[in-house]
């Protein structure tokens, strides 16, 4: 088991390096720092001095890969590649355009993101599994049919509308909770209720339908017939046998998402003014703050890889057939 985890972590390294190379290529090779400076400063009538100043402020005034002027090791380290890409492995992301340290900013913003994402994840999973079980229990009935139609209809509405509609109805018409904002501690609850509920509703259509399909697939298997032949009731078959087996693909499908919960949700956070990583990202995108976007790409990939590892481990916990080698 330990050897397996070590091996997986070793496998993760080349992937992170790959991610790093892709971002490096995207940000510094496809476009030169000069291009970026020109765009940010306004394409027309920008003086070379202004470009140099912009680059110097951000540390983009070094050579890309090899600094022939620098002595010794510095030839490799005093480069954009080392300063901007390699240093990420030490969680040194540099500074954002507003001068703040990106690593610290990320650390403080994880908590609000998690405060939204975690309840959404748990409630959403619970609700979807419950509804899917309900539909499967009443399979091939009108309840099932209209349930599926309802799920498809729910899936067909853009997430934006759930947010806009929810804010309008709950905050503007009913005045139940503030329309947006965030506070630490116990006060957070009143700001969190609406975004959490809206996210759960927004995602429930597709996941319910997906889980229903998994349950139905499971229910056609031979062991279910065996369980019925034992004399088990339909409910006992569903909860005692089908649920456990169907939870394997469900759990392992969602475990990969758990680390990514730290990243927060772009839409929800920006609509509700929650100072998490999602809104941080979206602000950086809108402000074209390349350093922050790069940092988020790195963090996101890292968390995804952790998620993959957790998925494999979770397999061993829920499925006796899987032994990690």
């Amino acid at each position: 088991m330990l050897a397996y985890i070590i091996r997986r972590l070793l496998y993760a390294l080349p992937i992170l390096i790959g991610v790093n190379l892709i971002t490096f290529a995207l940000f510094f090779v496809v476009n030169s720092p000069d291009d970026m400076a020109r765009m940010q400063l306004g394409v027309k009538r920008v003086t070379p001095e202004a470009i140099e100043k912009w680059k110097a402020e951000r540390g983009y005034d070094r050579p890309l890969l090899w600094n022939a002027q620098a002595p010794g090791v510095a030839a490799a380290t005093e480069t954009i590649f080392f300063q901007k890409s390699v240093k990420m492995f030490a969680f040194d992301f540099g500074r954002a355009d507003d001068g703040r340290d990106i690593a610290r900013e990320i650390a403080t913003r994880m908590a609000p993101s998690l405060a939204v994402a975690l309840p959404v994840f748990a409630l959403g999973l619970f609700a979807a599994v419950t509804f899917a079980l309900l539909l499967v229990y009443f399979r091939a009935s009108y309840l099932d049919f209209w349930g599926v139609v309802f799920c498809v209809a729910m899936m067909s509405v853009s997430g934006l509308f759930y947010i806009i509609g929810g804010q309008w109805l709950v905050s503007k018409v009913w005045h139940l909770v503030p329309i947006s904002g965030y506070a630490g501690g116990a006060d957070a609850a009143k700001f969190l209720v609406l975004p959490v509920i809206i996210s759960v509703i927004g995602g429930i259509g597709s996941s319910t339908r997906w889980y229903r399909t998994l349950f139905l697939e499971e229910i056609t298997k031979d062991y279910v017939r065996t369980a019925r032949a034992k004399g088990l009731s339909e409910r006992a078959v569903l909860f005692g046998h089908v649920l456990r087996n169907a939870l394997i693909p469900i759990l392992t499908g969602v475990v990969v998402l758990i680390p990514l919960l730290f990243m927060g949700s772009l839409l929800i956070e920006s609509f509700f003014g929650i100072p998490g990583l999602g809104s941080y990202t979206i602000d950086a995108i809108n402000a074209q703050d390349f350093a922050v976007v790069r940092a988020m790409v790195f963090i996101g990939s890292l968390l995804y890889i952790v998620g993959l590892l957790l998925t494999d481990i979770s397999y061993t916990l829920v499925d006796p057939r899987v032994r990690l080698q």
């Binding site: 298997k221 031979d222 062991y223 017939r225 065996t226 369980a227 019925r228 032949a229 034992k230 004399g231 088990l232 005692g240 046998h241 456990r244 087996n245 394997i248 829920v318 499925d319 006796p320 057939r321």
Partner: peptide
Amino acid sequence: RGGGMAMIFQEPGTSLNPVMTVGRQIEEA
């Protein structure tokens, strides 16, 4: 079912619940 009359099936490989111990599946009955 299982009490007065019991049934066994052709494919032993797929006819047992893969995530439940054999003992538990028998105890259930």
